[in-house]
């Protein structure tokens, strides 16, 4: 098992391999959170968020939420990919911790009005307007809820997304 910093520096075209990421533990999260706070390392951020998700430590929910919501102006493709991975990571953490606060955050995230209320100050070049950005964030939150395997998440998906 390589050191965590070496692990997240690899290119994973099909996403971070869960089996390998699961070799790391809560002892490695401090290193990952430090790298996440460094915008010079933004190319690693998507790998870091996926790995944090697979580690599944409840204490990382708040920093992940802060990462998703933080930032200003037009962000890079790498940063947007990482924020999207953050919503999946919350689903993975919920998978490991049925009482995780990630459940409420992801449930709220299924309403695009919630994203408006969160006053997100970043946007990307991909989306023509903030509504398209928020619709994409809702979709990604729904995928996170799916991957959690949580029955409460399933109920929320049904309640919020049924036509």
């Amino acid at each position: 098992t390589p050191p965590i910093t070496t692990f997240v520096q690899q290119l994973f075209p099909h996403g971070v391999p869960q089996a390998q990421a699961s070799n790391y533990s809560s002892a490695d999260t401090a290193v990952l959170l430090t790298l996440l706070a460094d915008s010079k390392q933004q190319d690693l951020h998507a790998n870091i968020l996926e790995t944090l998700g697979y580690i599944g430590d409840e204490t990382t929910v708040a920093p992940i939420v802060a990462y998703i919501q933080g930032g200003r102006g037009v962000i890079s493709a790498a940063q947007f990919r990482a924020k999207s991975s953050g919503l999946l990571a919350l689903g993975y953490i919920l998978n490991r911790n049925p009482n995780s606060s990630a459940l409420l955050y992801l449930t709220d995230s299924l309403d695009h009005q919630t994203w408006q209320a969160r006053d997100i100050a970043w946007t990307t070049a991909f989306f023509p307007d903030l509504i398209s950005r928020d619709v994409q964030l809702v979709r990604q939150a729904a995928v996170g809820m799916t991957l959690s395997g949580s029955p409460q998440a399933a109920a929320a998906l049904k309640r919020k997304l049924s036509p």
Binding site: V143, T146, L147, S148, G149, P151, A154, L161, S162
Partner: peptide, 24 residues
């Protein structure tokens, strides 16, 4: 809403068999 159905099915599979088995 077939997308929602797909998501609910995947959620159930992961609930029953674990995320590890679902992904591998």
């Amino acid at each position: 809403n077939s997308m929602l159905d797909e998501m609910l099915k995947a959620n159930q599979t992961i609930n029953a068999h674990g995320l590890d088995n679902y992904q591998s």
